[in-house]
Design a protein around this nucleic acid. Structure first.
Lengths: 229, 229
DNA sequence: ACAATTTACTGATAATTATCATATTTTTAA
DNA sequence: TTAAAAATATGATAATTATCAGTAAATTGT
């Protein structure tokens, strides 16, 4: 199942598309592909990364575990996203863990290929910069949301986010199925609180569920809820 | 009071130090210096920025106001920091307002100078990228803190942050004096809650105050509190 | 210097959210 | 397949935090 970066579709979604043919060839020659099973880590908080991970398939959560067992998810990364970039760029150990939420297929790209290109190809560097600017904006938005919105509003927002970013399956359920615990860790609340709100939303006809799958029933009302009506 | 970027000390703290002599000259020729009074905005949420602001003096808060009047401060920027970069890089309007917390002196650098250098000087781009990587890490830490720590812990952390980043004056008070409201907006809590906790910390001998000035009395205990003891 | 306005503070109370306990359902693995 | 483990669900309660109301102190502008 090995393949060349030059032909890889996910490259279209990330900064690797700004690489020259030769640079891409080098990356392709040095990369290794690996599969990560659901629940397994790509890397963990504090690790020194020797490269970055390019997601080909599946979804990873970037999160940090606190002393009292709370795990805050900062970002969900899927196809095309590059993980570990920040750590490689600042030459520090990671502040977040990356754990597979799905079975994943990722490529590991040694940092040398990245660093070299960063120093020589301004287009690539600028492209990476643009992605990072986007991530920073999103992170700022999360900060503002957590502190200004109620748990209920953030739950509503999370469902809309999941629909917009990962889509729905044939039966109208969110394509990315997260455990209740993961949902609560995205939203930043206790698992029981998240479950309660799911029940409430179900009663109100905003969502429907089947096992752990969740489907959005009334997007408008969810949106209104996010806005505070 | 006009001066040349080439001789500016604050440049040492930001990405402009990676510019070539000629690039810097261009920036210097196109920049304008302006003063911003305490409480006045450099720019506001939704503005399209035609350049970036380089802080020479004073402190600015980057924040977002919610519908119900809550203002979450995402970052405090002082000497040497460049504001508006993200917006210029992603060519979007800003998602945050920048308001002077102090009287400020800033340089406005038109985006053309920045964009040109970004496309031509990989060292500069990489330097900007490193700064942004740092900001992103800080933002992630804020997210985790808000959701995993209590208001009391975040208050303690805020005081330590203010000491470490802005220092103390001759009398041992935090050099950056924020209103109670601003403190509560950094921490992400109600103003009354912040005030209550300040009173409590005072009683416990962790801090002392004089008017709106706050001094740290027992750094160790504050640290322990942040860690959850 | 003084009235007006803003900011700081305190108490009482309400609302939100977390925690603990426990039951039920689902998933996992022998 | 079936016992064990894990995840989901719900109720009762506690803890945290916000809101409202009102007073005191500090700042501001004239």
């Amino acid at each position: 199942m090995e393949s060349r970066c030059e032909n890889c579709i996910v490259r279209q979604f990330n900064s690797l598309r700004a690489m020259s043919k030769e640079e891409l060839k080098k990356v392709s020659d040095s990369k290794t592909t690996k599969t990560v099973k659901k629940g397994e880590p790509l890397f963990e908080e504090g690790d020194k990364l020797n490269g970055v991970y390019c997601v080909r398939n599946g979804v990873s959560k970037l999160s940090k575990l606190s002393a009292n067992g709370k795990d805050q998810i900062v970002k969900l990364a899927s196809k095309g996203e590059v993980l570990g970039q920040r750590s490689v760029i600042s030459q520090e150990s990671t502040n977040l863990s990356a754990i597979a939420v799905d079975d994943m297929e990722v490529c590991f790209i040694p940092k040398e290929s990245i660093n070299n290109t960063l120093q020589k190809n301004p287009n690539f560097t600028l492209e990476v910069l643009r992605h990072m600017a986007h991530d920073l904006k999103e992170a700022d938005d999360v900060i503002v949301n957590i502190s200004q919105k109620t748990v209920k509003q953030r739950m509503a927002e999370a469902f809309l986010y999941l629909k917009n970013n990962f889509g729905e399956d044939a039966d109208g359920f969110l394509a990315l199925t997260l455990s209740r615990e993961d949902i609560s860790n995205v939203v930043g609340t206790a698992t029981e609180s998240a479950i309660r709100i799911i029940s409430e939303f179900k009663k109100k006809g905003l969502i429907h569920t089947s096992g752990k799958k969740i489907g959005i029933k009334d997007e408008r009302k969810l949106l209104e809820m996010v806005e505070g009506f």
